[in-house]
Nucleic acid binder design. Structure first.
Lengths: 160, 160
DNA sequence: AGGAAGACTCTTCCTAGCGAGATAATGGCG
DNA sequence: CGCCATTATCTCGCTAGGAAGAGTCTTCCT
């Protein structure tokens, strides 16, 4: 059936590797999607919105510039504008102009936004503890961090 | 500044956990996105299209029913129809009606589709070898598989 | 000063994919 | 033999997010 194979059955090896990575894809997505679905249900937060809130609440004064936030969340400027619009409409953040550079606007958590951010953060950490860290155990948890740091370093590219 | 904390500084712990998971998210996406970008550039295949091709080429006779493919690729029926349309337009698959059950249609790799599938599979495996498996080393590679299997088992839900 | 170049945000258009409902075919049951 | 619940697929409308470019403001260079 198959005609030309230089040496051995390398198709099979390729397939095994891809299957291995497919396992990574699936494990990651199953876990993350389920967690995000729960966050969405309980707090009405899309993944990107949750991400923004988490970054803001970690930030001094719960404030960050649009560009920095978009960059950290790996969103395009256009995409980020819409996320910011949604959060603003929901009353979770507000835009504040920068006083020293009028091109810049800050995104700032509102009181309500801070509340939602804190509660969703707690919920998210709880889910991670129960459904990720506890099942894996401490050694595997640490190993996973190390692995992911390596992957990021290798594939993050020389420019990042 | 913060008023009510039941016990200790649990905010910080929560944040640490979420940061840890953020590392997983980032490591995964950086790696996978870069790989998929390369597949897209070299073979003009979107991630979902590539996924379908890989599943088809593994399948007996390079043939599978729409529903089974959609389920394995975790696509909705509507979403899958469009992916199948794209692949059909590109001449990579064709639809074939099932003879015993006229509700069913098979997706079958065309000759061209088989060629693209094989070449993109080789390329993908090569990328994984160079940028994932080699940097991690064999023990971490095996550990990652084990970790991801655990996560899938825990979070896949009782229904899957 | 003053104008060119660059930075920040927003607007517009485009594609991917989800979800509800429409359509069609199957198979069990009266 | 015909009814109806079930299953497979497709159609349509919707939202998320990317890419390119416009508008505004700042900074640098002369």
């Amino acid at each position: 059936m198959h005609a030309e194979h230089g040496i051995g059955e390398s198709d099979h090896d390729d397939d095994e590797i891809i299957t291995w990575w497919g396992l990574v894809i699936e494990g990651y997505h199953v876990t993350n999607d389920r967690m995000m679905a729960e966050i969405a249900e309980r707090f009405d937060l899309a993944p990107s919105s949750f991400d923004i809130l988490i970054r803001l609440i970690r930030s001094p004064d719960h404030r960050m510039t649009m560009t920095k936030l978009a960059g950290e969340a790996a969103l395009s400027s256009g995409g980020f504008t819409k996320v910011a619009d949604r959060l603003t409409t929901a009353g979770l953040i507000r835009r504040e102009p920068c006083e020293t550079d009028r091109r810049v606007t800050y995104a700032v958590l509102t009181e309500h936004g801070r509340d939602i951010a804190e509660r969703s953060r707690t919920a998210c950490a709880e889910i991670l503890r129960n459904r990720v860290i506890a099942p894996l155990g401490a050694p595997a948890t640490a190993a996973l961090a190390s692995t992911m740091r390596t992957l990021r370093a290798v594939n993050g590219g020389p420019t990042e």
